[in-house]
Amino acid sequence: MHELSIAQNILDIVVAAAEKEGAQKITRITLVAGETRAIVPEQLTFCFEVIAGGTIADGAELDLEIVPVRGTCRGCGEGFIVEDFLYICPKCQGRDIEITGGTELRIKDIEVD
C-alpha cells in the first residue's frame, strides 16, 4: 500500500503546479512509472480518487505510462529490455547489469481548465 503515499505526493505536486498556472480544475494527469517501481495501477487510481476528493483535482483522470526496465551489460555493452526482473545479458549471459531505465516515477504533464 505504498500507493497511498505516492497518491498523496502526486496530489501535492499537481495541485501546486495547477495553482501556479492559476487553473481552477485539473482534468488529467500523466504519470510516467518505471516497471521497477512496482506500482499497481488500479490501487494507485483508487487511492488517488479518494484523496483528490474535494480538491481541484477531484475527478481528474490519472494516465499511467509504464516504462519497461532497460539494462546495459557491463561486460559486453549490450543494451536490452529486462523482462521479469531477470538481470541477465541475453548476448553474453553476463549478470553485471547497469539499469539504464525503468526506475523513474515522474509526473509528466497535467491538463487544466
Binding site: 502526486i10 505536486i13 504519470l31 523513474e104 516515477l105 515522474r106 509526473i107 504533464d109 491538463e111 487544466v112
Partner: peptide, 14 residues
C-alpha cells in the same frame, strides 16, 4: 490547457 510538470513523485521524500 496542458501544463508540463516533470517533477519526480518522490522528490519531497528524497
Amino acid at each position: 490547457m496542458k501544463v508540463n510538470v516533470m517533477v519526480d513523485v518522490m522528490e519531497a521524500n528524497d
